[in-house]
Design a protein around this nucleic acid. Structure first.
Lengths: 1403, 359
DNA sequence: CCAATATCTATTGATATAAGTAATAGAGAATAT
DNA sequence: ATATTCTCTACCGACAATATCAATAGATATACA
């Protein structure tokens, strides 16, 4: 048992939240990848305290001896495979531990014990003994419960128990197994028989060597009374009883009390919880409203109402919503929406006592509502559908059904269908097997079990875990959500694979939440017990129970993730059922009669697309329904999972403990990588992530509120259905396709026509998606209007933080950001007002001037600002021209309010003000490299005004262009005066991410095209030319950065091609298993997940889907490892910087939010935040991070072998070759990588032995390494040979038409037709004419220019850096050599501390 | 003179050929003559016709064809430098009334231009008879051959491209991998969309094929269809790998477009493609099931009209039955709003804007 | 009860699918010679 | 072992080709009305 984590947390007051969370302690399950990690302890780097005196020490030293190094990741799959093979069962669909464990869980939980019993042997073979013991006990518990129910006895269970010993040798029954039965035996009506059983079992257990008291140790199973009975029955000494069952004098529980506790503890406690809830309900309002907060009343305290109105569920007093947004909510509603905020504002007028009281009540109230939000949202959606349905029927309006009407119909039909399905599953699971049927044919009987029935037996148990009505609601909501959020790369509809997997996952989540809730009941029960049963020993016991259950939960109920194929089967089953029942009325024009006809059609269709000749399954929603969606508000289509929270998120305490209270959320968004998961779990287990947790908690505890005024403007605009900023027009009706070309039109014409049509479809679909997205955002905003909301955060695998709720969060686009502001207001003060103005200038895009100018900018525009604030839509709409219009509008509101308030400095501002890193990636690079020039360019160095790197690069590039132009460079001439900031910006930015020449050129091409200043025919050459220049300039400017980038890449290359010292399977020569892993200064292990993707086909109800087995470990994709490492490393640093800043801000009482490299806080606190974030950056970079990284690599990959090539003409190479030949003859077979490495490790073992003879033996042994001996490996390594001019392209590309002549030229020439253009050219009049014409002119032009180009390109070498120097690669002899890393590039003279005074570092 | 022997074509070509190295060529003149005799082409095409000859390559087939039929116009379209000059200035320099043009017959535009500049001027002949004023041949023996074959067939369905002049017969050299898809009949394993289209719009014959024995022993997959597909195995004329340059499996297909039938005027080939494409996604499923891929509610709607076909699998459907389905589909009120296959639309914003502007 | 066998099923691996290739260029990996 | 061809081309949030068939391995019932 580990000590409780998170206890040493800082002063952040979490009140009861924290208390309850501690119970959710994280334990790495015994089943996770075993952590045979090595711990070295190099000297600790003494890191001085960070930021502010109130800050406790945060250890940001990377290498302080706490690396998580997991070495046995690769062993397991191999063993597992063997095990699976050993099973050799036809029912091999049970593939892995996860599968069998989850299946057992499902079968047991759903009560299909017979089937579970059949599966059990397989579990026995696949699972480890510990795992199996847990699974068996789970089974036993359910079995004995049934036994008691059915036979009023436990004798069957005892029989089963006995046989179990023989059936599963090697896995003795543990104390819990006995405890389970004994505890149940206590409840047998026949007390005597019960006692017999108890003593028999006890005897047996003792015979097995167990102690009686161990049995009673399982306090969660026994009631107080039963425990006493057992003890009495067996003459167990009082002292041997667990403390919980001792009578220590204070016992006062009446028999009734005790009786009420019998039966399942959980049930009883849940009863109590209800009491408590009732109690809260009764007690709360008077408490809350005592001080005259009557306006709170409309939002009653029973969370559900809020939930309903929030999710537009049934509010009995309200008329159903019109299918448009009320753009100006009526006064009442408005009051209601703003209720909490107004109250909060007036709070300061009250005595402290009342304030505290109010706050407590408010938290408690929100806690309840959060519970409701997380647990009842599905019902709420359903209620809403039902309500709409009934309303329409009551009014007789059934001709045109609205969405909710349909959804209700589907839901009811689907639920019914599902129940049928579940009945069938029941039958199959209970009787489907072991019932021999007869047949006349030889061989296996033609059983009545169809293939689909067999499938049912696979997934049925899982399906039974969630209530059918819930299944149906989830299915509908999930599909609608996926439909609107873009189907995963398909233009129309949803990828089937995505749909089935997501849906399967959603069901699993629901099940897990329910289970969690059940166990949570115990906790809340505990709270109730505390208040109600103070002196009863039962209380103590329940405390122990609660503790045991919550602690044990992680251990005993290893709730394994459902395998993907199961998810797919469940998802596809549900979808097929929905597809079967979901119907809508559609109408169309009969092409023959011309009449309007209508019919009932399925709402969903399953079709396919071909992409590149490969099939792709797609689910489509009927277009009539799609139209409905874009017309009607998203109302009850909101997916209730992962909404913003009403209370502070549960603090993070483990790899899946944090954020929401009633569902598990992963701390890290992993990419289905077992490796990543293993590392993060291990790091959590070792409490390495306290700082990360705390940082995320700070981000999560920022309270937000919807900016009502922005919301109103948005809603108004939305309702017009017109295009507005990024909101596209609402299209309805069919797309107006261009006329199909005549049948005999040229294939090219036809192709172009099809392209145009497809594009129009694409456009339409995109704008629909966008509108849906806005719709969702609006709907969420609307639901939470006036509420204090929180965004729980988690991290990606590099540590960057993201808000979990999708659609609406502050990381979203301009609109999302405009809609959100801080809940808490802080008086601006003088500085705050200034920052507010600067912020306004920033969001207008005026962010490249110095601060004073930005302030001036805001002052100058003050009339516009007022106008925008006063009449956002009816005025001059100045805000709309801003680069971030919605945020600008919000800023206008805020600034106008502030300035107009009697005392602007006292104005309580809620608007988050941003400080953005100026090219943050380069900032980190510059700091890493101590690169003075680079540091200046990205404002690490103090300056009077901000440096804009993009402008700078553009001007340097332009200098070159001018110079070349003067020298007669034709392309340069074209470009003079046309190299703008915008043209180079993207490429400079992406340079940090390792953009290639080709990629950058494409970007520049696009930008050039946009300027429209350059002739089409020159675009390519210009882009190519500019790209080389941009690369050159950037490399010069950030030389230090590039050295580091190269160093990082080189390390990644070596690592990803290295092999661990112990190779367990023969590798293909080029496949390596080592991914790049490093630890951020905050202790987060980052594992690059890039591996070869291996997917298999899995059949489902709809189609077969192609999914990967996430538990298989595949060779790394070393290319991806290499190219992604530099950016990932930098991102892991910027994430660290952000979390450090968050930590410090949190501890200093600032509200803090961040979008990676944009940090937000109240205007008034910007100065403090600026100091904090600078300090954090300095602390981060004070140590030599690159050197530390190298150290870490050297430790982490100690003993790894890298594949290098040495000069095969060297003496050593020749000897190695001979040695290999020798080895080959010795082994009598081909030498593998493994052989060679084994030889080497043998040698090492001998050398390290204590036995001198062995040592001598080792010394005498020959391996490639011993051959190389002390020779400098760098000398032996193949050198890159640079030669001028590659011959590569000389031979290539002769297949093209000769020269650059157009086909037309050639044809004319060959046919001897004069150049005069014939006049009969107009003959093909169609949409093609334009196309063709333009094509031709283009080609003619390029022909004209061709001569020039050849000349100019040849003799301008000023720009062609290295373009005709090719690396000639020669193959050497490959050997394995201990992995080493190149020396880190020398660090420049820049002192990172100087940035403390840099105003524009973040600005 | 026999090509393909060392020395006749310089070995250096191999390395220098680039993509053209994939092109397998018929280089046995006698064999070519044998094929031509078997085809009895001279009954239909004698002197007074034009010949479009794509990728003559080594030029042996072209030469044999030319000598055998003596077309009044012989247009050779050869994009690859070496092959081009080989034909123009070398091996085929003496052919009368012939032009070697260095353009890529892969490109549709080329045909427009050739027509515009009068490289060939075929007569328009009604669709009730084969147009004997034009013959189309070529060696489409790269990996793209299959694509071209498929598109040529589609062109027959649309009666566009050269097929707009009438029913133009085509002698197409393709690889076995391309040929076998086109020649399958209902219920044959390789029956698919292409062969369905072929059987609707053309009579196709395997005239000659490589001898499958030449490819048997190789562990590579090359040429295995020669063995597996009866139509190829039983080709009237067999030739050996030694008859080819670049030694690969080769099949000569004789494609004769069918006459235009009445239903063709009602049904857009676009719709036919859609129906075929979707039905052949699940070739072994009954129409009852597969018809649902045609659009929402298809099964229910067509039950009364096509129910008699519902038990058949797509794989079993005959051309006539397809026509029946086309015709019903044509008048289906609830057909999808468009019939495009939206796959492969990685249209970036630039192209998008261009095209939008164009509209 | 066993043995042998016929028959059935699940699993796995292989193969085909569609159908314009609009361009660019250089390194690294994979495959063929 | 060396040469040629094939592939991919910026990071993260946000993963996904499918139908069909042949071969094979494993399970299970068989001789009755």
């Amino acid at each position: 048992m580990l000590p409780l984590t998170a206890t040493a947390r800082s002063a952040v007051t979490r009140g009861r939240l924290l208390k309850s969370c501690r119970l959710f302690n994280s334990k790495t399950s015994a089943l996770s990848v075993a952590g045979a990690y090595q711990t070295h302890s190099p000297p600790m780097h003494d890191i001085p305290e960070i930021i502010g005196d109130r800050s406790p020490r945060v250890d940001i030293s990377t290498n302080s001896g706490k690396l998580v190094i997991l070495t046995d990741l690769f062993d397991r799959p191999t063993e597992g495979d063997e095990e699976v093979d050993a099973i050799s069962s036809r029912n091999r669909y049970i593939r892995n531990r996860n599968h069998v464990a989850s299946l057992m869980d499902a079968l047991v939980t759903s009560g299909h014990l017979k089937r579970a019993d059949i599966i059990l042997p397989q579990a026995h073979e696949i699972l480890s003994p510990e795992e199996f013991a847990l699974v068996r006990n789970d089974f036993l518990q359910m079995f004995v419960k049934k036994d008691l129910e059915d036979h009023k006895s436990v004798s069957y269970s005892i029989n089963w128990l006995q046989s179990s010993v023989d059936r599963f040798p090697g896995i003795p029954l543990d104390s819990k197994s006995y405890a389970i039965i004994i505890a149940t035996a206590c409840r047998m009506p026949d007390l005597l028989r019960g006692n017999e059983h108890i003593s028999d079992l006890m005897k047996q257990y003792k015979k097995q060597g167990g102690l009686a008291k161990d049995i009673l140790q399982h306090v969660e199973l026994f009631t107080f009374r039963d425990a006493r009975r057992v003890a009495m029955n067996l003459d167990i000494d009082e002292e041997d009883l667990p403390a919980d069952f001792r009578t220590d004098g204070s016992r006062s529980a009446s028999p009734e009390d005790a009786e009420s506790m019998s039966g399942s503890v959980t049930e009883a406690l849940s009863k109590m919880q209800q009491c408590e809830a009732q109690d809260i309900l009764n007690r709360l309002p008077p408490d809350v409203f005592k001080s005259g907060f009557d306006s709170l009343t409309p939002v009653d305290s029973h969370g559900i109402k809020l939930l309903r109105s929030a999710l537009k569920g049934v509010a009995a007093s309200k008329r159903p919503q019109l299918p448009v947004y009320a753009s100006n909510p009526d006064a009442d509603a408005s009051r209601e929406d703003e209720g909490f905020l107004h109250l909060e504002e007036q709070l300061s007028l009250l005595p402290d006592e009342d304030q505290t009281k109010y706050r407590d009540a408010f938290e408690s109230y929100n806690m309840d509502r959060q519970l409701a939000l997380e647990t009842l949202a599905l019902e709420s959606a359903r209620e809403r559908w039902k309500y709409d349905y009934e309303q329409m029927h009551a009014r007789g309006e059934v001709r045109v059904k609205n969405i909710n009407h349909y959804l209700w119909e589907w839901h009811t039909a689907m639920t019914e269908q599902l129940q049928e399905e579940l009945k069938r599953i029941d039958l199959l699971l209970d009787y489907g097997t072991g019932k021999p049927s007869k047949s006349k044919t030889r061989g296996a009987p033609k059983s009545a079990v169809t293939p689909s029935d067999r499938a049912r037996m696979r997934y049925g148990a899982y399906l039974k875990l969630v209530d059918p009505a819930k299944l149906s609601v989830i299915t509908i909501l999930e599909l609608l959500k996926m439909h609107s959020s873009g189907g995963g790369g398909v233009t129309e509809g949803i990828r089937t694979t995505r749909a089935v997997l997501n849906l399967g996952r959603a069901i699993e989540m629901e099940y897990n939440s329910e289970q969690l809730l059940k166990s949570d009941v115990v906790q809340t029960g505990f709270r109730a017990t505390k208040s109600m049963l103070h002196s009863v020993p039962e209380f103590k016991r329940s405390l122990a129970v609660a503790k045991r259950i919550t602690e044990g939960k992680n251990l005993s109920s290893w709730r394994p993730e459902w395998p993907d194929d199961i998810k797919a089967e469940i998802g596809s089953t549900l979808i097929s059922i929905l597809m079967h029942v979901a119907r809508i009325t559609v109408s169309a024009v009969d092409p023959v009669t011309g009449q309007q006809v209508s019919a009932i059609a399925p709402a969903f269709t399953h079709t396919y697309q071909y992409t590149g000749g490969l099939k792709l399954g797609v689910l489509k929603l009927h277009r009539d329904f799609v139209n409905k969606i874009s017309r009607e508000p998203a109302s009850a289509m909101l997916h209730p999972q992962q909404l913003p929270m009403l209370v502070k998120p549960k603090p993070w305490v483990g790899w899946n403990e944090g954020a929401y209270y009633y569902s598990k959320t992963a701390l890290m968004r992993t990419k289905d990588s077992a490796e990543q998961t293993a590392y993060i779990k291990e790091a959590c287990r070792r409490n390495d992530l306290e700082s990360v947790y705390e940082g995320l908690d700070v981000l999560g505890s920022a309270a937000w509120i919807i900016n009502t005024r922005v919301f109103e403007v948005l809603a108004k605009v939305w309702n017009t259905g017109e295009e507005f900023l990024e909101i596209p027009t609402r299209y309805e009706g069919d797309i107006n396709f261009p006329l199909e070309p005549p049948k005999d039109a040229d294939p090219a014409v036809r192709r172009d026509w099809a392209r145009v049509c497809k594009l129009m479809i694409h456009e339409r679909r995109t704008s629909h998606s966008q509108r849906c997205d806005v719709n969702y955002k609006l709907e969420i905003s609307r639901a939470f209007l006036g509420e204090r909301i929180f965004f729980p955060h988690n991290i990606d695998f590099r540590g960057r933080a993201y808000a979990i709720p999708p659609h609406l969060n502050h990381l979203g686009n301009d609109m999302c950001r405009g809609l959100l502001m801080f809940w808490e207001g802080k008086p601006l003060g003088e500085r705050g007002l200034r920052w507010l103005k600067i912020h306004l200038a920033n969001v207008c895009g005026y962010d490249k001037a110095d601060f004073q100018s930005r302030v001036q900018y805001a002052d100058d525009k003050i009339q516009e600002i007022f106008d925008s604030a006063d009449c956002p839509l009816d005025g001059r709409r100045w805000w709309m021209q801003a680069s971030d219009p919605w945020q600008c509008l919000a800023a206008c509101f805020e600034l106008a309010d502030a300035l107009r308030s009697p005392d602007p400095y006292a104005f309580r501002s809620r608007l988050p003000v941003h400080q953005d890193g100026t090219c943050n990636g380069l900032q980190h690079y510059a700091a890493l490299g101590g690169d003075i020039e680079g540091a200046r360019q990205v404002n690490l160095e103090p300056g009077d005004k901000p440096q804009d790197i993009y402008t700078h690069v553009a001007s340097r590039v332009h200098d070159y262009v001018k110079q070349d132009a003067e020298n007669g460079h034709e392309v340069a001439k074209i470009l003079v005066g046309k190299v703008s900031r915008k043209v180079v910006k993207q490429s400079v930015m992406t340079n940090v991410y390792g953009v290639t020449y080709i990629g950058a050129r494409a970007q520049i091409l696009g930008q050039l095209k946009d300027t429209k200043q350059i002739d089409e025919r020159d675009l390519w050459r210009c882009a190519a030319y500019l790209t080389t220049l941009v690369f050159k300039v950037v490399r010069n400017l950030f030389n230090g950065a590039h050295l580091i980038q190269d160093w990082l890449a080189e390390c990644a290359k070596r690592i990803s091609k290295s092999v661990p010292p112990t190779v367990h399977s023969d590798l293909k020569p080029n496949s390596s298993m080592t991914s790049v892993i490093w630890t951020t200064p905050l202790g987060l292990p980052v594992v690059q997940p890039y591996r070869e993707i291996v997917r298999k086909q899995v059949g489902t109800n709809l189609q077969s889907v192609f999914i990967s087995d996430p538990y298989a470990i595949h060779p790394v994709n070393s290319r991806k490892q290499v190219t992604a490492f530099p950016p990932n490393f930098i991102h892991s640093l910027d994430a660290t910087h952000m979390l450090l800043s968050a930590l410090a801000c949190g501890r200093n009482g600032l509200t803090f939010a961040a979008v990676h490299d944009s940090y937000w806080t109240h205007a008034a606190d910007i100065d403090r935040m600026n100091a904090i974030l600078r300090d954090a950056f300095i602390k981060l970079h004070e140590g030599d991070l690159v050197a530390k990284l190298k150290e870490e690599f050297e430790r982490r990959y100690a003993g790894y072998m890298q594949f290098i090539e040495i000069d095969n003409h060297s003496r050593e190479a020749k000897r190695i070759t001979e040695w290999r030949k020798e080895l080959r003859t010795r082994l009598g077979r081909k030498v593998t990588v493994r052989d060679e490495i084994e030889e080497e490790s043998n040698r090492k073992e001998l050398l390290n032995s204590n036995d001198p003879i062995k040592r001598a033996e080792g010394a005498a042994m020959m391996t490639p390494l011993s051959i190389i001996g002390n020779t400098d490996i760098e000398e032996l390594k193949m050198k890159r040979v640079y030669t001028t001019n590659g011959t590569r392209n000389a031979v290539k590309s002769t297949e093209n038409e000769s020269g650059e002549k157009t086909s037309e030229e050639i044809i004319r020439e060959t046919l001897g037709i004069p150049d005069s253009v014939p006049t009969e050219r107009q003959e093909t009049a169609s949409i093609n004419d334009n196309l063709e014409a333009s094509e031709e002119t283009m080609e003619e032009h390029s022909l004209d220019d061709e001569v020039d180009e050849q000349e100019t390109v040849e003799d301008t070498d000023s720009t062609a850096i290295g373009s005709n120097i090719k690396v000639l690669k020669m193959r050497g002899l490959g050997i394995f050599y201990p992995l080493t890393f190149p020396p880190v590039p020398p660090k420049g003279a820049f002192d990172v501390k100087t940035l403390r005074n840099s105003l524009y570092f973040f600005s | 003179m026999k090509l393909g022997e060392p020395g006749v074509l310089p070995n250096t070509w191999r390395g220098a050929i680039g993509k053209a190295h994939q092109r397998v060529n018929m280089v046995n003149y006698e064999k070519s003559e044998e094929i031509l005799k078997y085809l009895k082409l001279n009954e239909d095409y004698n002197k007074n016709f034009e010949l479009i000859d794509c990728y003559p390559g080594c030029g042996v087939w072209s030469r044999a064809l030319h000598k055998h039929l003596e077309p009044k116009v012989h247009v050779m379209l050869e994009s690859f430098d070496n092959y081009y000059s080989w034909n123009k200035d070398g091996y085929n320099r003496d052919l009368s009334a012939s032009k070697v043009i260095q353009v890529d017959p892969y490109k549709w535009k080329v045909y427009n231009l050739l027509e515009r500049y009068g490289a060939y001027k075929p007569e328009h002949v009604p669709f009730n008879q084969i147009n004997k004023s034009l013959l189309y041949t070529g060696q489409f023996t790269t990996a793209q051959g299959g694509q071209l074959l498929s598109q040529f067939i589609t062109c027959i369905a649309y009666r566009n491209w050269i097929q707009k002049f009438g029913r133009i017969r085509m002698l197409l050299w393709v690889r076995d991998t391309a040929a076998f898809r086109a020649v399958a009949t209902p219920e044959e394993p390789s029956r698919g969309k292409l062969s369905a289209l072929v059987s609707l719009f053309a009579d196709i014959d395997v005239v000659a094929a490589s001898d499958s024995n030449d490819f048997k022993r190789q562990d590579t997959k090359t040429g295995k269809f020669l063995e597996r597909i009866p139509a190829l195995r039983n080709a009237p004329i067999k030739f050996s790998v030694d008859d080819t340059f670049m030694k690969g499996p080769l099949v000569l297909l004789d494609v004769k477009p069918k006459e235009q039938r009445e239903w063709e005027s009602e049904i857009s080939a676009h719709e036919m493609e859609y129906v075929l494409r979707n039905l052949f996604i699940t070739p072994k499923m009954q129409l009852r099931t597969s018809i649902n891929t045609l659009g929402a509610g298809a099964r229910e709607y067509f039950e009364s009209r096509l129910g008699h076909l519902y038990d058949k699998t797509t794989h079993q459907l005959t051309p006539d039955e397809f026509v029946e389905i086309f015709q019903e589909f044509k008048v289906w009120p609830y057909k999808p709003e468009h019939l495009f296959d939206l796959g492969e639309d990685d249209l970036d914003s630039r192209t998008k804007r261009d095209i939008i502007q164009f509209i």
